[in-house]
């Protein structure tokens, strides 16, 4: 037996020239699963909630209260909550599906050899990068909507003094670094969890990997929460008007 670790996802088959990778297949499966659960919940809503409905109610209510406590007002919270909750629930489901026992035993054979049909979705950098780009674009849109296009540009290009100009340039770097830091954090954690689990399984097959599996479950939940929360915090920062800006606006 040898370790089979690759950073790029494996290609299962092609539709015309479009490669279908195992992580793409699983992300579609997870989306379908989440949509199905949502539809079942939607069409079985009752005044007296059953088991599934009360779980969903508690989850959504607690998350909404959390969003409200971070962003400050209920009106803003209602706008940002769908994004926050979608990111959280999708990443959480994608991470936790990794721990279904036996899924890594399902393999298929194609031209290049034996390929596992399952791959942790967040261990594919493309997927994580797309999620990050979505949240970064929304952060920029919120910032432009709050400060206005000129105020937004003025934050980065400031010619009042050399120091302010330098700080503005550093802000541009900071915005670009956001993409890298958000995506690398999620990708690194999940991929490292996969590799660690595989290496431990390779070294000592019995019992020893269990604590690492537990650590993996913890990481899966915490990282889903962290990704969604950081997006929320960045949006909150972008949607706030700084005090000196208020003074400027008042003087105009």
């Amino acid at each position: 037996m040898e370790l089979n670790i690759s950073i790029a996802p494996e290609i299962i088959f092609y539709i015309k020239s479009f490669p279908v990778t195992n992580s793409l297949l699983w992300s579609l499966f997870i989306s379908a699963f989440l949509i199905l659960v949502t539809l079942i919940l939607r069409f079985s809503l009752k005044m007296v909630p059953g088991g599934l409905q009360s779980c969903a109610e508690v989850l959504i209510e607690e998350s909404f209260n959390f969003v409200k406590s971070v962003i400050g007002s209920e009106e803003k919270a209602k706008k940002v909550f769908p994004l926050f909750f979608t990111l959280f629930i999708f990443i959480l489901a994608a991470n936790l599906f990794t721990f279904i026992p036996g899924q890594s035993a399902i393999t298929i054979k194609n031209g290049d050899g034996v390929i596992s049909v399952f791959r942790a979705v967040m261990a594919d950098y493309g997927m994580v990068l797309v999620l990050t780009i979505i949240s970064v674009i929304i952060i920029q849109v919120v910032a432009i909507a709050t400060h206005g296009p000129w105020g937004y540009l003025g934050k980065f290009l400031n010619f009042k003094s050399p120091l302010k100009f330098f700080l503005g340039v550093m802000d541009i770097v900071g915005e670009i670094a956001k993409i890298l830091s958000l995506s690398f954090r999620l990708f690194g954690n999940i991929f490292a969890g996969e590799v660690l689990g595989m290496v431990m399984l390779f070294l000592i097959p019995f019992i020893a990997p269990l604590p690492f599996m537990f650590l993996g479950v913890l990481t899966a939940i915490v990282q889903a929460f962290v990704f969604a929360t950081l997006t929320l915090v960045f949006i909150t920062l972008a949607s706030e008007i700084e005090p000196d800006e208020l003074i400027e606006q008042a003087s105009i």
């Binding site: 950073i7 830091s181 690398f184 954090r185 990708f187 690194g188 954690n189 991929f191 490292a192 590799v195 915490v222 990282q223 962290v226 950081l230």
Partner: peptide, 15 residues
């Protein structure tokens, strides 16, 4: 998790 990210960068490079 935020503090950890620098460690994760090193890990990604290692991998």
């Amino acid at each position: 998790a935020i503090t950890e990210s620098t460690g994760i960068y090193a890990l990604v490079i290692t991998l």
